[in-house]
């Protein structure tokens, strides 16, 4: 696997690897790619991914607003500020 490909995947996955673990990890990643490579030979086109099942309009959820969930319960697994979730300052 190309180093650049690996870096793109790290970015997409929001993961990083220390130089010491990188080689081993790349090897393990390559092994799973090799294992699945065989399916490239299967006949398929984009229609293969079209939805097989569908529901009708009447099956969808009615547009009724429900009481909201208590904010303090949602925020209980973190340390909120002004009832908000906290992240390091974002510069846009």
């Amino acid at each position: 696997m190309e180093n650049s490909t690996f870096e793109v995947l790290c970015e997409a996955s929001q993961l990083s690897f220390a130089d010491t673990e990188k080689e081993n990890f790349m090897e393990r990643l390559s092994s799973i790619i090799e294992f699945t490579e065989i399916i490239k030979n299967i006949d398929a086109d984009s229609s293969s991914i079209e939805p097989q099942n569908s529901v009708s309009l009447g099956d969808l959820r009615e547009d009724t607003a429900l009481p909201s969930f208590p904010a303090e319960k949602l925020l209980a697994n973190t340390e909120p500020l002004f009832d908000c979730y906290v992240i390091p300052k974002i510069m846009e």
Partner: peptide, 10 residues
């Protein structure tokens, strides 16, 4: 972004 100097809030 304007409630705290260090943090952004969601």
């Amino acid at each position: 972004h304007d409630q705290s100097p260090k943090y952004s809030l969601a």
